[in-house]
Amino acid sequence: MDSPNLLQLLREKAEAVQVVVQEITDLAEACRYAVEVTSRQGGATIAAPGWDPATLSLLKDICQAAQIEVLTENLREQASRLHTGLTLADWGLAETGTLVHESSSEDLRLATMLSETHIAVLPLSRLQPDATALEAELNGLMHSPPRYLAFITGASRTADIERVLTLGVHGPLELHLLLLKD
């Protein structure tokens, strides 16, 4: 499948599990998007572990203006304060609308698990058709432990009461996917 089709498939599959999908052109746009969503939702923090210094400083600047605090470490201690988690996904799987995070870092993991809203940036060069296409890479990681690899497809969900689909039982209530053209 060529890449426009792959992108279309990813979008379809992600939206089918209530993911908000948005295309962006650079990381500054991702930062502005995260701040805007956080402000709109009345959140006071953005947990942003694992970002490069340039992006981080960009984010901090925008956050400062919006009076939002950026958290990058020791998220465990601040578990009750995490509003938005802003992360960079390692891969995307079009077939299932899935994000793959190599999240051996505890802070990265917690940002994707404990935040109310999870916003993930996926560079389109990292989009793969399915898990099988990524087998060699995943295997490589598993051969160099310790590793905590996460496939994330949509927000945390349950249907345990009367089979009614409800989002956000333990993890994020919303998942936003920002597709970065790179």
Binding site: K13, A16, V17, E95, T96, G97, T98, L138, L141, M142, P145, P146, R147, Y148, L149, A150, F151, I152, T153, G154, A155, S156, R157, G171
Partner: peptide, 10 residues
């Protein structure tokens, strides 16, 4: 199509 989370721990 897939569960929300699939976790691989090594």
């Amino acid at each position: 199509v897939i569960t929300s989370y699939v976790t691989w721990i090594t």
